[in-house]
């Protein structure tokens, strides 16, 4: 019998049976991580959902049976049926098509936020840790300050407070360049949402990178590289970045789900994506007034949102188990 198939994913290297150890020896760190991830059902389920979402978002226009803006006054507030598998809203728009487009919105916004967040966080965190002393204390203080505040309120506040300014900016840019998209209210609302959520999102990676750099700096291998005559740049590129990458991947995954949730939250509050842009949050809000009689208005986008957020959560947890074996609880 092939032992390797029945060995649990989190077996300790010392106690592994011979078959497993042989299999393990040939794997690199990343192979090993992938092996662990593959054997985590929740993580794989999360990954599947996420991949499906990405595909659906990319091919939204092809998959959607209707135009997401098309109003059909003969089919208002239809419950789910063969023609409209998630029903129609109070303007007779096909909810399924709108959920697909909302997925595209959420995905685009989350991608922008988590990538900029990761980059800004990486820079700030690394800078802070290396600068040390007063600079570091100040950065930590700012991060803590941002974090004491209920995150959604901060995002909402920034979104409201900066929307007029960004709109003005886009207006003057339009006057200078004549680019039509700068007058597109939906585009501007995207920018506002990304900016508002981004203001908070960078703190998580920054804090992580900082503590990682600090703990790595304590590890002697950094000093060993320094002793070899390496300049700081070499140490960062060849040692710090690869070591930080594992935790970063986990964090970006988790912050991706978080960003999607925040986008929906802002749109739900009416200060996120402007109509006619499609957003799950806005759809939920619009459906709320009729939730008792037409629950599918809320359930269709709501369950989609919950499933996607959950999928990313499971994926992040599984990645964490796979990439940071030390944080695993026995």
């Amino acid at each position: 019998m092939d032992t390797s198939t029945i060995v649990p994913a989190d077996i300790s290297p010392g106690g592994a049976p011979a078959g497993a150890r042989r299999a393990k020896r040939s794997r690199s760190f990343w192979d090993d991580a992938w092996y662990k991830f593959r054997h985590n059902w929740a993580g794989m389920a999360g990954l599947t959902v996420f991949v499906l979402l990405c595909l659906a978002a990319i091919f939204a226009k092809q998959i959607a049976p209707y135009d997401y803006l098309e109003q059909d006054w003969t089919a208002i507030l239809q419950p789910p049926s063969a023609a409209h598998i998630m029903g129609t809203d109070d303007l007779g728009r096909d909810i399924f098509s709108r959920v697909l487009m909302g997925g595209r919105t959420a995905l685009m916004v989350a991608m922008a936020i988590s990538l900029t967040g990761a980059i800004v966080g990486l820079l700030v965190g690394a800078f802070s840790a290396f600068a040390g002393g007063k600079v570091d204390a100040l950065v930590v203080w700012v991060i803590d300050g941002v974090m004491t505040f209920p995150a959604i309120w901060l995002a909402a506040f920034v979104s409201v407070a900066t929307a007029p300014a960004l709109k003005n900016l886009a207006g003057s840019l339009y006057n200078a360049t004549g680019w039509e998209f700068l007058r597109n209210e939906v585009m501007i609302s995207y920018a506002v949402v990304v900016f508002a959520i981004g203001m908070i999102n960078w703190t998580w990676p920054a804090r992580l990178v900082r503590s990682q750099v600090l703990s790595l700096r304590e590890r002697e291998f950094i000093e060993a590289t320094l002793a070899l005559g390496a300049r700081p740049r070499w140490i960062i590129m060849k040692h710090l970045v690869p070591n930080v990458l594992g935790s970063m991947i986990v964090l970006v995954t988790l912050s991706f789900g978080n960003a999607m949730l925040f986008e929906s939250s802002l749109s739900y509050l009416g200060i996120g994506i402007r109509p006619p842009g499609a957003s799950w949050g806005a759809m939920i809000f619009q459906g709320m007034s009729k939730v008792r009689t037409h629950p599918y208005l809320v359930l269709a986008p709501g369950i989609t949102l919950a499933v996607v957020v959950l999928a990313l959560q499971f994926m992040g947890d599984a990645l964490n188990d796979a990439l940071n074996p030390k944080s695993r609880n026995k």
Binding site: F29, R219, E220, F221, E223, A224, T225, K238, H239, P242, N243
Partner: peptide, 13 residues
């Protein structure tokens, strides 16, 4: 040459 042969080698190199 360092004291701790575990901490002084980069685990990911």
């Amino acid at each position: 040459i360092f004291q701790d042969p575990y901490a002084s080698l980069d685990p990911r190199a």
